[in-house]
Design a protein around this nucleic acid. Structure first.
Lengths: 126, 126, 126, 126
DNA sequence: GTGGTCTAGACCACC
DNA sequence: GTGGTCTAGACCACG
Protein backbone atom coordinates (compact mmCIF):
# COMPACT_ATOMS: atom_id res chain seq x y z
CA UNK A 1 0.00 0.00 0.00
CA UNK A 2 1.20 3.47 -0.81
CA UNK A 3 2.82 5.15 2.17
CA UNK A 4 2.79 8.89 2.32
CA UNK A 5 6.21 9.09 3.94
CA UNK A 6 7.86 12.43 3.56
CA UNK A 7 4.65 14.22 2.76
CA UNK A 8 4.60 17.67 4.31
CA UNK A 9 1.78 20.15 4.05
CA UNK A 10 2.61 23.41 2.33
CA UNK A 11 0.89 26.73 2.78
CA UNK A 12 -1.10 28.61 0.19
CA UNK A 13 -1.72 25.60 -1.97
CA UNK A 14 -4.99 23.65 -1.65
CA UNK A 15 -4.37 20.46 0.28
CA UNK A 16 -6.25 18.28 -2.17
CA UNK A 17 -3.90 19.46 -4.93
CA UNK A 18 -0.89 18.61 -2.78
CA UNK A 19 -2.16 15.07 -2.34
CA UNK A 20 -2.75 14.75 -6.06
CA UNK A 21 0.75 16.05 -6.75
CA UNK A 22 2.29 13.56 -4.34
CA UNK A 23 0.68 10.64 -6.14
CA UNK A 24 1.64 11.97 -9.55
CA UNK A 25 5.27 12.42 -8.53
CA UNK A 26 5.35 8.92 -7.09
CA UNK A 27 4.07 7.51 -10.36
CA UNK A 28 6.72 9.39 -12.31
CA UNK A 29 9.41 8.15 -9.92
CA UNK A 30 8.25 4.59 -10.24
CA UNK A 31 7.73 4.27 -6.51
CA UNK A 32 4.03 4.00 -7.19
CA UNK A 33 3.20 1.28 -9.67
CA UNK A 34 0.18 0.19 -11.65
CA UNK A 35 -2.08 -1.80 -9.36
CA UNK A 36 -0.73 -0.39 -6.11
CA UNK A 37 -3.36 0.13 -3.46
CA UNK A 38 -4.22 3.55 -2.16
CA UNK A 39 -4.82 3.85 1.60
CA UNK A 40 -8.46 4.10 2.54
CA UNK A 41 -9.79 7.62 2.67
CA UNK A 42 -10.16 7.61 6.42
CA UNK A 43 -6.76 6.10 7.00
CA UNK A 44 -5.05 8.68 4.82
CA UNK A 45 -6.94 11.50 6.47
CA UNK A 46 -5.67 10.25 9.82
CA UNK A 47 -2.12 9.89 8.52
CA UNK A 48 -2.00 13.40 7.13
CA UNK A 49 -4.07 15.05 9.81
CA UNK A 50 -6.56 16.49 7.36
CA UNK A 51 -10.27 16.14 6.93
CA UNK A 52 -11.67 13.00 5.23
CA UNK A 53 -13.61 15.21 2.86
CA UNK A 54 -10.42 16.79 1.62
CA UNK A 55 -8.94 13.36 0.94
CA UNK A 56 -12.14 12.34 -0.77
CA UNK A 57 -11.83 15.30 -3.07
CA UNK A 58 -8.33 14.21 -4.12
CA UNK A 59 -9.45 10.66 -4.80
CA UNK A 60 -12.43 11.81 -6.84
CA UNK A 61 -10.16 14.01 -8.91
CA UNK A 62 -7.58 11.27 -9.43
CA UNK A 63 -10.30 8.89 -10.50
CA UNK A 64 -11.66 11.44 -12.92
CA UNK A 65 -8.20 11.66 -14.51
CA UNK A 66 -8.05 7.90 -14.76
CA UNK A 67 -5.11 7.61 -12.40
CA UNK A 68 -6.90 5.59 -9.77
CA UNK A 69 -9.81 3.21 -9.92
CA UNK A 70 -12.27 2.80 -7.11
CA UNK A 71 -14.68 -0.05 -6.62
CA UNK A 72 -17.15 -0.06 -3.79
CA UNK A 73 -16.05 -2.36 -1.05
CA UNK A 74 -12.51 -2.72 -2.33
CA UNK A 75 -9.40 -0.63 -1.98
CA UNK A 76 -8.81 1.99 -4.63
CA UNK A 77 -5.87 1.12 -6.81
CA UNK A 78 -3.59 3.02 -9.12
CA UNK A 79 -3.89 2.75 -12.87
CA UNK A 80 -0.80 3.61 -14.85
CA UNK A 81 -1.21 3.41 -18.63
CA UNK A 82 1.52 3.28 -21.21
CA UNK A 83 1.70 7.03 -21.86
CA UNK A 84 0.98 8.09 -18.32
CA UNK A 85 4.48 8.60 -17.03
CA UNK A 86 5.87 10.80 -19.80
CA UNK A 87 2.75 12.92 -19.73
CA UNK A 88 2.94 13.39 -15.98
CA UNK A 89 6.66 14.10 -16.04
CA UNK A 90 6.08 16.76 -18.64
CA UNK A 91 3.22 18.26 -16.65
CA UNK A 92 5.03 18.30 -13.32
CA UNK A 93 8.40 19.53 -14.47
CA UNK A 94 7.19 21.87 -17.15
CA UNK A 95 5.01 23.77 -14.79
CA UNK A 96 6.72 24.23 -11.49
CA UNK A 97 10.32 24.10 -12.65
CA UNK A 98 9.66 26.81 -15.17
CA UNK A 99 8.13 28.91 -12.42
CA UNK A 100 11.07 28.30 -10.13
CA UNK A 101 13.65 29.11 -12.78
CA UNK A 102 11.76 32.27 -13.61
CA UNK A 103 11.77 33.26 -9.96
CA UNK A 104 15.46 32.64 -9.46
CA UNK A 105 16.37 34.54 -12.58
CA UNK A 106 14.26 37.43 -11.39
CA UNK A 107 16.18 37.33 -8.13
CA UNK A 108 19.30 38.01 -10.12
CA UNK A 109 20.82 34.57 -9.68
CA UNK A 110 23.06 33.10 -12.34
CA UNK A 111 22.66 29.57 -13.56
CA UNK A 112 25.64 28.49 -11.50
CA UNK A 113 24.23 30.04 -8.35
CA UNK A 114 20.92 28.35 -8.95
CA UNK A 115 22.54 24.97 -9.38
CA UNK A 116 24.66 25.55 -6.30
CA UNK A 117 21.53 26.38 -4.34
CA UNK A 118 19.87 23.19 -5.56
CA UNK A 119 22.95 21.22 -4.56
CA UNK A 120 23.07 22.72 -1.09
CA UNK A 121 19.44 21.92 -0.43
CA UNK A 122 19.94 18.46 -1.82
CA UNK A 123 22.61 17.70 0.72
CA UNK A 124 20.58 18.94 3.66
CA UNK A 125 18.00 16.31 3.11
CA UNK A 126 20.31 13.37 2.66
CA UNK B 1 8.37 53.12 -12.22
CA UNK B 2 8.54 49.40 -11.60
CA UNK B 3 7.58 47.42 -14.67
CA UNK B 4 6.09 44.00 -14.23
CA UNK B 5 7.74 42.63 -17.34
CA UNK B 6 7.99 38.88 -17.36
CA UNK B 7 5.32 38.47 -14.75
CA UNK B 8 3.08 35.55 -15.58
CA UNK B 9 0.14 34.40 -13.53
CA UNK B 10 0.38 30.95 -12.05
CA UNK B 11 -2.52 28.73 -11.11
CA UNK B 12 -3.37 27.51 -7.64
CA UNK B 13 -1.40 30.21 -5.90
CA UNK B 14 -3.22 33.35 -4.71
CA UNK B 15 -2.58 36.17 -7.12
CA UNK B 16 -1.86 38.68 -4.39
CA UNK B 17 0.93 36.41 -3.08
CA UNK B 18 2.40 36.18 -6.56
CA UNK B 19 2.52 39.96 -6.78
CA UNK B 20 4.16 40.17 -3.37
CA UNK B 21 6.71 37.55 -4.39
CA UNK B 22 7.53 39.40 -7.57
CA UNK B 23 8.30 42.57 -5.68
CA UNK B 24 10.35 40.75 -3.07
CA UNK B 25 12.44 38.99 -5.69
CA UNK B 26 13.01 42.26 -7.49
CA UNK B 27 14.27 43.81 -4.27
CA UNK B 28 16.62 40.90 -3.69
CA UNK B 29 17.91 41.14 -7.25
CA UNK B 30 18.49 44.85 -6.92
CA UNK B 31 16.26 45.60 -9.88
CA UNK B 32 13.85 47.29 -7.47
CA UNK B 33 15.51 49.95 -5.38
CA UNK B 34 14.63 52.02 -2.36
CA UNK B 35 12.43 54.88 -3.45
CA UNK B 36 11.24 53.28 -6.68
CA UNK B 37 7.64 53.98 -7.54
CA UNK B 38 5.09 51.22 -7.68
CA UNK B 39 2.52 51.38 -10.48
CA UNK B 40 -0.84 52.60 -9.31
CA UNK B 41 -3.32 49.92 -8.29
CA UNK B 42 -5.45 50.58 -11.33
CA UNK B 43 -2.59 50.51 -13.75
CA UNK B 44 -1.12 47.31 -12.43
CA UNK B 45 -4.51 45.63 -12.32
CA UNK B 46 -4.96 46.52 -15.97
CA UNK B 47 -1.46 45.29 -16.83
CA UNK B 48 -2.03 41.93 -15.14
CA UNK B 49 -5.67 41.55 -16.04
CA UNK B 50 -6.79 41.16 -12.45
CA UNK B 51 -9.10 43.10 -10.19
CA UNK B 52 -7.81 46.34 -8.64
CA UNK B 53 -8.83 44.99 -5.27
CA UNK B 54 -6.49 42.05 -5.63
CA UNK B 55 -3.62 44.41 -6.30
CA UNK B 56 -4.75 46.53 -3.38
CA UNK B 57 -4.47 43.53 -1.12
CA UNK B 58 -0.86 42.98 -2.19
CA UNK B 59 0.03 46.60 -1.62
CA UNK B 60 -1.63 46.67 1.78
CA UNK B 61 0.31 43.58 2.79
CA UNK B 62 3.59 45.00 1.50
CA UNK B 63 2.93 48.21 3.40
CA UNK B 64 2.22 46.22 6.56
CA UNK B 65 5.63 44.58 6.16
CA UNK B 66 7.23 47.98 5.70
CA UNK B 67 8.31 47.26 2.13
CA UNK B 68 6.24 49.96 0.48
CA UNK B 69 4.87 53.25 1.69
CA UNK B 70 1.57 54.62 0.44
CA UNK B 71 0.23 58.14 0.67
CA UNK B 72 -3.20 58.90 -0.65
CA UNK B 73 -3.07 60.88 -3.84
CA UNK B 74 0.56 60.03 -4.50
CA UNK B 75 2.28 57.01 -5.97
CA UNK B 76 3.29 54.29 -3.55
CA UNK B 77 7.02 53.85 -3.29
CA UNK B 78 9.35 51.08 -2.18
CA UNK B 79 11.20 51.20 1.13
CA UNK B 80 14.28 49.02 1.40
CA UNK B 81 16.02 49.09 4.77
CA UNK B 82 19.54 47.97 5.51
CA UNK B 83 18.68 44.43 6.57
CA UNK B 84 15.86 43.95 4.13
CA UNK B 85 17.65 42.16 1.33
CA UNK B 86 19.35 39.37 3.29
CA UNK B 87 16.14 38.65 5.17
CA UNK B 88 14.13 38.46 1.97
CA UNK B 89 16.71 36.29 0.20
CA UNK B 90 16.61 33.86 3.11
CA UNK B 91 12.83 33.81 3.11
CA UNK B 92 12.42 33.34 -0.63
CA UNK B 93 15.01 30.66 -1.17
CA UNK B 94 14.37 28.73 1.99
CA UNK B 95 10.73 28.20 1.31
CA UNK B 96 10.13 27.49 -2.33
CA UNK B 97 13.45 25.90 -3.19
CA UNK B 98 13.06 23.42 -0.38
CA UNK B 99 9.63 22.51 -1.68
CA UNK B 100 10.92 22.12 -5.20
CA UNK B 101 13.89 19.97 -4.18
CA UNK B 102 11.57 17.80 -2.16
CA UNK B 103 9.30 17.33 -5.15
CA UNK B 104 12.11 16.46 -7.53
CA UNK B 105 13.61 13.98 -5.14
CA UNK B 106 10.23 12.35 -4.77
CA UNK B 107 10.05 12.11 -8.56
CA UNK B 108 13.16 9.98 -8.40
CA UNK B 109 15.49 12.52 -9.91
CA UNK B 110 19.15 12.58 -8.94
CA UNK B 111 20.93 15.77 -8.09
CA UNK B 112 22.59 15.76 -11.49
CA UNK B 113 19.29 15.33 -13.30
CA UNK B 114 17.81 18.15 -11.29
CA UNK B 115 20.67 20.46 -12.16
CA UNK B 116 20.46 19.45 -15.78
CA UNK B 117 16.76 20.23 -15.78
CA UNK B 118 17.47 23.64 -14.28
CA UNK B 119 20.09 24.23 -16.93
CA UNK B 120 17.81 23.27 -19.77
CA UNK B 121 15.06 25.56 -18.59
CA UNK B 122 17.60 28.31 -18.09
CA UNK B 123 18.60 28.21 -21.69
CA UNK B 124 15.07 28.26 -22.99
CA UNK B 125 14.50 31.69 -21.58
CA UNK B 126 17.67 33.32 -22.77
CA UNK C 1 -23.86 83.90 3.43
CA UNK C 2 -24.56 80.56 5.00
CA UNK C 3 -22.18 79.79 7.83
CA UNK C 4 -21.49 76.19 8.65
CA UNK C 5 -21.19 76.83 12.36
CA UNK C 6 -21.67 73.77 14.47
CA UNK C 7 -20.97 71.41 11.63
CA UNK C 8 -19.03 68.40 12.83
CA UNK C 9 -17.90 65.52 10.70
CA UNK C 10 -19.32 62.15 11.56
CA UNK C 11 -17.80 58.78 10.80
CA UNK C 12 -19.18 56.10 8.54
CA UNK C 13 -21.40 58.47 6.61
CA UNK C 14 -20.19 59.94 3.32
CA UNK C 15 -19.10 63.52 3.85
CA UNK C 16 -20.98 64.85 0.86
CA UNK C 17 -24.20 63.47 2.35
CA UNK C 18 -23.44 65.18 5.64
CA UNK C 19 -23.07 68.52 3.88
CA UNK C 20 -26.34 67.97 2.04
CA UNK C 21 -28.04 67.07 5.31
CA UNK C 22 -26.74 70.20 7.00
CA UNK C 23 -28.24 72.41 4.31
CA UNK C 24 -31.54 70.56 4.35
CA UNK C 25 -31.87 70.87 8.11
CA UNK C 26 -31.04 74.56 7.93
CA UNK C 27 -33.81 75.05 5.36
CA UNK C 28 -36.29 73.22 7.55
CA UNK C 29 -35.23 75.29 10.56
CA UNK C 30 -35.64 78.51 8.64
CA UNK C 31 -32.07 79.52 9.30
CA UNK C 32 -31.38 79.11 5.61
CA UNK C 33 -33.77 81.09 3.44
CA UNK C 34 -34.63 81.29 -0.22
CA UNK C 35 -31.99 83.33 -1.97
CA UNK C 36 -29.30 82.87 0.67
CA UNK C 37 -25.84 82.55 -0.77
CA UNK C 38 -23.82 79.39 -0.42
CA UNK C 39 -20.13 79.80 0.35
CA UNK C 40 -17.90 79.23 -2.63
CA UNK C 41 -16.77 75.67 -3.05
CA UNK C 42 -13.19 76.40 -2.18
CA UNK C 43 -14.13 78.48 0.84
CA UNK C 44 -16.38 75.78 2.24
CA UNK C 45 -13.77 73.13 1.65
CA UNK C 46 -11.32 75.22 3.66
CA UNK C 47 -13.87 75.81 6.42
CA UNK C 48 -14.67 72.14 6.81
CA UNK C 49 -11.22 70.82 6.13
CA UNK C 50 -12.37 68.54 3.34
CA UNK C 51 -11.47 68.26 -0.29
CA UNK C 52 -12.99 70.70 -2.80
CA UNK C 53 -14.13 67.76 -4.92
CA UNK C 54 -16.19 66.48 -2.05
CA UNK C 55 -17.86 69.87 -1.65
CA UNK C 56 -18.42 70.02 -5.37
CA UNK C 57 -20.21 66.72 -5.22
CA UNK C 58 -22.60 68.06 -2.57
CA UNK C 59 -23.33 71.19 -4.59
CA UNK C 60 -23.96 69.21 -7.74
CA UNK C 61 -26.37 66.97 -5.90
CA UNK C 62 -28.19 69.90 -4.26
CA UNK C 63 -28.53 71.58 -7.62
CA UNK C 64 -29.89 68.42 -9.13
CA UNK C 65 -32.56 68.38 -6.45
CA UNK C 66 -33.41 72.00 -7.18
CA UNK C 67 -32.33 73.18 -3.74
CA UNK C 68 -29.54 75.43 -4.96
CA UNK C 69 -28.98 77.24 -8.21
CA UNK C 70 -25.54 77.87 -9.63
CA UNK C 71 -24.62 80.36 -12.31
CA UNK C 72 -21.14 80.60 -13.66
CA UNK C 73 -19.35 83.58 -12.22
CA UNK C 74 -21.87 84.16 -9.46
CA UNK C 75 -22.38 82.68 -6.02
CA UNK C 76 -24.66 79.68 -5.80
CA UNK C 77 -27.84 80.51 -3.99
CA UNK C 78 -30.53 78.53 -2.25
CA UNK C 79 -33.91 77.94 -3.83
CA UNK C 80 -36.75 77.13 -1.44
CA UNK C 81 -40.06 76.47 -3.14
CA UNK C 82 -43.49 76.45 -1.54
CA UNK C 83 -43.60 72.74 -0.73
CA UNK C 84 -39.92 72.34 -0.01
CA UNK C 85 -39.93 72.66 3.76
CA UNK C 86 -42.68 70.15 4.59
CA UNK C 87 -41.17 67.64 2.20
CA UNK C 88 -37.72 68.02 3.71
CA UNK C 89 -39.01 67.87 7.26
CA UNK C 90 -40.82 64.66 6.44
CA UNK C 91 -37.74 63.22 4.77
CA UNK C 92 -35.33 64.13 7.54
CA UNK C 93 -37.41 63.19 10.54
CA UNK C 94 -39.11 60.20 9.06
CA UNK C 95 -35.90 58.51 8.21
CA UNK C 96 -33.41 58.99 10.97
CA UNK C 97 -35.78 59.41 13.88
CA UNK C 98 -37.49 56.17 13.01
CA UNK C 99 -34.13 54.48 12.93
CA UNK C 100 -33.13 55.96 16.25
CA UNK C 101 -36.39 55.02 17.95
CA UNK C 102 -36.06 51.53 16.59
CA UNK C 103 -32.55 51.29 17.99
CA UNK C 104 -33.48 52.54 21.43
CA UNK C 105 -36.43 50.20 21.65
CA UNK C 106 -34.17 47.34 20.68
CA UNK C 107 -31.86 48.37 23.49
CA UNK C 108 -34.71 47.77 25.87
CA UNK C 109 -35.36 51.40 26.71
CA UNK C 110 -38.82 52.62 27.59
CA UNK C 111 -40.30 55.75 26.07
CA UNK C 112 -39.63 57.65 29.27
CA UNK C 113 -36.00 56.58 29.33
CA UNK C 114 -35.59 57.62 25.74
CA UNK C 115 -37.06 61.05 26.39
CA UNK C 116 -34.89 61.44 29.47
CA UNK C 117 -31.83 60.57 27.41
CA UNK C 118 -32.82 63.16 24.81
CA UNK C 119 -33.28 65.73 27.54
CA UNK C 120 -29.92 65.02 29.11
CA UNK C 121 -28.11 65.37 25.81
CA UNK C 122 -30.05 68.52 25.08
CA UNK C 123 -28.78 70.17 28.21
CA UNK C 124 -25.18 69.26 27.56
CA UNK C 125 -25.10 71.31 24.44
CA UNK C 126 -26.74 74.42 25.83
CA UNK D 1 -30.53 31.08 18.22
CA UNK D 2 -30.57 34.83 17.79
CA UNK D 3 -33.33 35.97 15.49
CA UNK D 4 -32.85 39.17 13.58
CA UNK D 5 -36.54 40.09 13.78
CA UNK D 6 -37.18 43.73 13.24
CA UNK D 7 -33.87 44.30 11.56
CA UNK D 8 -34.24 46.65 8.63
CA UNK D 9 -31.46 47.76 6.37
CA UNK D 10 -30.69 51.44 6.35
CA UNK D 11 -29.11 53.37 3.53
CA UNK D 12 -25.78 55.13 3.61
CA UNK D 13 -24.47 53.19 6.56
CA UNK D 14 -22.26 50.15 5.94
CA UNK D 15 -24.30 47.00 6.31
CA UNK D 16 -21.69 45.25 8.40
CA UNK D 17 -21.81 48.08 10.93
CA UNK D 18 -25.59 47.80 11.10
CA UNK D 19 -25.30 44.12 11.92
CA UNK D 20 -22.72 44.85 14.59
CA UNK D 21 -24.96 47.54 16.06
CA UNK D 22 -27.93 45.20 16.16
CA UNK D 23 -26.01 42.64 18.14
CA UNK D 24 -24.59 45.24 20.51
CA UNK D 25 -28.01 46.69 21.22
CA UNK D 26 -29.42 43.24 21.82
CA UNK D 27 -26.68 42.56 24.36
CA UNK D 28 -27.39 45.84 26.12
CA UNK D 29 -31.11 45.06 26.17
CA UNK D 30 -30.49 41.63 27.60
CA UNK D 31 -32.30 39.96 24.72
CA UNK D 32 -28.98 38.48 23.63
CA UNK D 33 -27.27 36.57 26.40
CA UNK D 34 -23.85 35.07 26.99
CA UNK D 35 -23.66 31.76 25.17
CA UNK D 36 -26.44 32.48 22.70
CA UNK D 37 -25.82 31.11 19.24
CA UNK D 38 -25.44 33.40 16.28
CA UNK D 39 -27.06 32.30 13.02
CA UNK D 40 -24.59 30.87 10.54
CA UNK D 41 -23.14 33.34 8.04
CA UNK D 42 -25.08 31.77 5.22
CA UNK D 43 -28.35 31.74 7.05
CA UNK D 44 -28.13 35.32 8.20
CA UNK D 45 -27.04 36.50 4.77
CA UNK D 46 -30.12 34.81 3.32
CA UNK D 47 -32.34 36.33 6.00
CA UNK D 48 -31.08 39.84 5.37
CA UNK D 49 -30.66 39.51 1.64
CA UNK D 50 -26.99 40.49 1.71
CA UNK D 51 -23.80 38.74 0.71
CA UNK D 52 -22.36 36.10 3.06
CA UNK D 53 -19.10 37.96 2.96
CA UNK D 54 -20.68 41.07 4.40
CA UNK D 55 -22.01 39.03 7.30
CA UNK D 56 -18.59 37.44 7.66
CA UNK D 57 -17.04 40.86 8.05
CA UNK D 58 -19.41 41.66 10.91
CA UNK D 59 -18.69 38.40 12.66
CA UNK D 60 -14.95 38.80 12.26
CA UNK D 61 -15.18 42.28 13.76
CA UNK D 62 -17.33 41.10 16.64
CA UNK D 63 -14.87 38.31 17.32
CA UNK D 64 -12.00 40.78 17.30
CA UNK D 65 -13.84 42.76 19.96
CA UNK D 66 -14.36 39.61 21.99
CA UNK D 67 -18.14 39.72 21.67
CA UNK D 68 -18.50 36.48 19.77
CA UNK D 69 -16.44 33.33 19.55
CA UNK D 70 -16.20 31.28 16.38
CA UNK D 71 -15.01 27.72 15.93
CA UNK D 72 -14.88 26.25 12.49
CA UNK D 73 -17.57 23.68 11.96
CA UNK D 74 -19.60 24.87 14.93
CA UNK D 75 -22.00 27.73 15.42
CA UNK D 76 -20.53 31.02 16.60
CA UNK D 77 -21.71 32.04 20.03
CA UNK D 78 -21.92 35.27 21.99
CA UNK D 79 -19.52 36.11 24.79
CA UNK D 80 -20.71 38.70 27.29
CA UNK D 81 -18.23 39.58 30.01
CA UNK D 82 -18.97 41.31 33.27
CA UNK D 83 -18.20 44.84 32.12
CA UNK D 84 -19.48 44.41 28.59
CA UNK D 85 -22.97 45.81 28.97
CA UNK D 86 -22.17 49.16 30.61
CA UNK D 87 -19.40 49.80 28.11
CA UNK D 88 -21.65 49.03 25.17
CA UNK D 89 -24.52 51.14 26.51
CA UNK D 90 -22.17 54.09 26.87
CA UNK D 91 -20.80 53.59 23.38
CA UNK D 92 -24.15 53.21 21.67
CA UNK D 93 -25.99 56.07 23.32
CA UNK D 94 -23.10 58.49 23.38
CA UNK D 95 -22.50 58.33 19.68
CA UNK D 96 -25.74 58.20 17.79
CA UNK D 97 -27.96 60.04 20.22
CA UNK D 98 -25.58 62.97 20.26
CA UNK D 99 -25.68 63.09 16.48
CA UNK D 100 -29.45 62.94 16.45
CA UNK D 101 -29.88 65.66 19.07
CA UNK D 102 -27.48 67.85 17.14
CA UNK D 103 -29.50 67.37 13.97
CA UNK D 104 -32.82 68.11 15.60
CA UNK D 105 -31.51 71.25 17.24
CA UNK D 106 -30.18 72.40 13.92
CA UNK D 107 -33.63 71.85 12.46
CA UNK D 108 -34.90 74.40 14.95
CA UNK D 109 -36.78 71.97 17.13
CA UNK D 110 -37.21 72.65 20.82
CA UNK D 111 -36.60 70.00 23.41
CA UNK D 112 -40.33 69.55 23.82
CA UNK D 113 -40.86 69.09 20.10
CA UNK D 114 -38.09 66.55 19.99
CA UNK D 115 -39.57 64.57 22.81
CA UNK D 116 -42.99 64.77 21.23
CA UNK D 117 -41.53 63.47 17.97
CA UNK D 118 -39.94 60.59 19.85
CA UNK D 119 -43.25 59.85 21.51
CA UNK D 120 -45.18 59.87 18.26
CA UNK D 121 -42.77 57.47 16.60
CA UNK D 122 -42.84 55.30 19.67
CA UNK D 123 -46.58 54.80 19.40
CA UNK D 124 -46.46 53.94 15.73
CA UNK D 125 -44.46 50.87 16.41
CA UNK D 126 -46.48 49.52 19.26
C1' DG E 1 -23.98 21.78 7.14
C1' DT E 2 -19.89 25.12 9.57
C1' DG E 3 -16.12 29.10 9.36
C1' DG E 4 -12.50 31.26 6.39
C1' DT E 5 -10.17 33.19 2.07
C1' DC E 6 -9.65 34.99 -2.68
C1' DT E 7 -11.17 37.50 -6.50
C1' DA E 8 -14.28 40.94 -8.50
C1' DG E 9 -16.60 45.50 -9.26
C1' DA E 10 -18.39 49.86 -7.55
C1' DC E 11 -17.98 53.74 -4.65
C1' DC E 12 -15.79 57.39 -1.62
C1' DA E 13 -12.28 60.92 -0.31
C1' DC E 14 -8.27 63.09 -1.81
C1' DC E 15 -4.34 65.36 -5.01
C1' DG F 1 -5.49 60.80 -11.72
C1' DT F 2 -4.28 58.66 -6.45
C1' DG F 3 -5.25 55.27 -2.23
C1' DG F 4 -8.98 53.12 0.58
C1' DT F 5 -13.50 50.71 1.73
C1' DC F 6 -17.81 48.07 1.01
C1' DT F 7 -20.46 44.65 -1.15
C1' DA F 8 -20.69 40.47 -3.96
C1' DG F 9 -19.94 35.56 -5.42
C1' DA F 10 -17.08 31.42 -5.66
C1' DC F 11 -13.99 28.34 -3.54
C1' DC F 12 -11.47 25.72 0.20
C1' DA F 13 -11.00 23.09 4.63
C1' DC F 14 -13.49 21.18 8.27
C1' DG F 15 -17.32 18.67 11.49
Amino acid sequence: MISFDGFVLEDNVPIYLQIIGYVKRGIVAGSILDGDEMPSRRMLSAMLGVNPNTVQKSYAWLEEQGLVQSRTGAKSCVRVGRDTIPALRQELLGHSLKTMVEAMKQMGMTREEAQAAIASFWEVEE
